[in-house]
Design a protein around this nucleic acid. Structure first.
Lengths: 334, 334
DNA sequence: TTGAAAGCGCTAACAC
DNA sequence: GTGTTAGCGCTTTCAA
């Protein structure tokens, strides 16, 4: 007697084993029509006995659903990997809870999304690292499958978007510091390459910041910083030169944070108030008291999946969702 | 006239448009049999005109190949995300160059690999974050599809493995320091949770270290450290208490490095020689001169893909590949 | 409540 | 060098 491993049995084998027709097995498994409890059980035990697993390709061919989501993720050096991975983790976890798997596309091949979409490898797509005038937008709009952007292009058209409201992040950071009496508020922004790509979040934060300091009649003191310790040091040095009376800093560059802290210490300027914009796991390693605004990567990834599944289910709700940020305190000795 | 978007046309449409049979189209596209140049061109232009893309599910059903690779990746908090992402990037990039896509599985569901494998969603699997007695090994051995482990379990059996030779890393780090006259060599290892899981690389490095210091008749001074600035500080403090004459440190914990450097500085012990074990992008942000051994994540990911494609092609080469590490110098002012 | 059978779009014999 | 056609394993009418 031959015991074949799992994945060998077909729906026909199950049907024979259970003494029913293939359609009955199919319906029993999908629940798309009522099946008597007795047959349901016979089928289930046949499935277990044979280790039956539906063949994904056959199912996709017949039903036109793959149960796979494309995740277009950047993996660019200048974007903080821990942020990326938070988004990815959120997407993958939530996708599984919707019974979807995730096909990971990195950006090295600009047409890979087109390839997998028109090859019917995926039911939908989630796109990260969106630029203000993202070159992928035409492709995305032409897709049969729904897509959700993580980020906010200038003209999303009918595409669904979700992100932290970075304009509000900039405003709130400034407002929070102003409320604490600060008026010389600098901004250390994303890496020059990130800004050069006109990455949507980087510019939006800067816009919010710019508006807010203007309303305060405070000087706009924004610099881009390389995502490194050295980048943080240079940025602080430059800002202190431009404005020696600097009394606060908004830092939107996770990798530069250690350098920023170090430079302030060396300059004897621990009095400069800090608002960090970063993921939750990063703030824990910051060695000074400060305030921070969370970039909730995992949460945004989850929402993106929820939006995409809603679209798959035919819903047509609000197209753009921006999460409201909150300023929180980070204290070494609570 | 209706211009339908890409992904609507079938191979039958192409065949009609080009005035040939479907099999000719199929063979022309796959190159699996000689086609006259003339027909090849007619077919190609029909493909272009119609925007034809083969339906992945149909292809998988007929050919029993999905051209998809499962990547089982951890995304565990205690493992450095930048290391993980290097592996992932290596895998995805190399996979694409073999015309494979990557289905990303995270570990939250232990049976997901079984699910996608027996559901014929993937042709092969690459598994990261391998433990010495990994609970997934039985599943992996039962799979129809080939698998490659990144890491080295105690008993890999017939499974292919690839990793940096961490035993050698430990030995070389010690040998290098010993050659520089150091005899009180500490080891700051992976996070306690990583060790508790018996993660293969962590223990192998420790073994190499232990053997090497024993041969020197030097004391074994190993501690686990939390992956954080605080973890690095505590580890240094503890080691300096145990051995005030400490003159060298091997650090195999990326996230603890800043704390280690800081603690040594505060203790006035900048004379302690350092060998860091970390990915290349991390060493750049280390603010002191030291030596380091690269963990070539991307390279290992690439090799894993090459091994898996070799297996798909029917090869049966060397089962376990361990990359030889090299000690290099990191100098702030070269 | 169940079954029979027609596809889904492609590959790969098997023909010529 | 090219065409015909029988599957691949599933879903989903249509019929009972």
């Amino acid at each position: 007697m031959t015991t074949s491993g799992p994945g060998e049995a077909t729906i026909g084998d199950v049907a024979r084993e259970a003494g029913v027709s293939v359609s009955t097995v199919s319906y029993a498994l999908s629940g798309k029509r009522p099946i008597s409890e007795a047959t349901r059980q016979r089928i289930q035990s046949a499935v277990d006995r044979l280790g039956y697993r539906p063949h994904a390709g056959a199912r996709a061919l017949a039903s036109r659903r793959t149960h796979v989501l494309a995740l277009v993720a950047p993996l660019r050096v200048d974007v903080n990997v821990s942020v990326i991975l938070q988004f990815v983790a959120g997407v993958v976890t939530r996708a599984r809870s919707h019974d979807l798997d995730v096909l990971l596309l990195t950006n090295d091949d600009p047409h890979s999304l087109d390839r997998v979409a028109s090859g019917s490898m995926v039911d939908a797509a989630i796109v990260m690292d969106v630029e203000r005038e993202d070159p992928r937008l035409p492709e995305l709009r032409a897709m049969r499958q729904p897509a959700v952007l993580i980020g906010l292009p200038d003209d999303p058209g009918p595409l669904a978007c979700v992100d932290l409201d970075f304009v509000s992040v900039g405003r709130q950071a400034v407002a929070h510091l102003a409320a604490a009496g600060r008026r010389r508020i600098g901004l250390i922004g994303a890496a020059p390459t990130v800004l050069a790509r006109r990455t949507s979040f980087a510019e939006r934060l800067m816009r919010g910041y710019g508006e807010a300091v203007a309303r305060l009649d405070a000087p706009a003191l924004a610099v881009a910083a390389q995502g490194s310790r050295g980048g943080g040091i240079s940025a602080v040095t430059e800002l202190l030169e431009r404005e020696p009376a600097l009394d606060a800093l908004v830092v939107h560059n996770e990798l530069a944070v250690p350098g920023v802290v170090e430079a302030l210490r060396r300059a004897g300027r621990e009095d400069v108030a800090l608002v960090l914009v970063c993921p939750a796991d990063l703030v824990g390693s910051v060695p000074v008291d400060c305030d921070w605004i969370e970039v909730p990567g995992a949460r945004i990834g989850e929402i993106a999946v929820d939006m995409v599944t809603a679209q798959l289910a035919g819903a047509t709700g609000p197209e753009v969702r921006l999460l409201e940020p909150t300023v929180r305190a980070h204290r070494l000795n609570p």
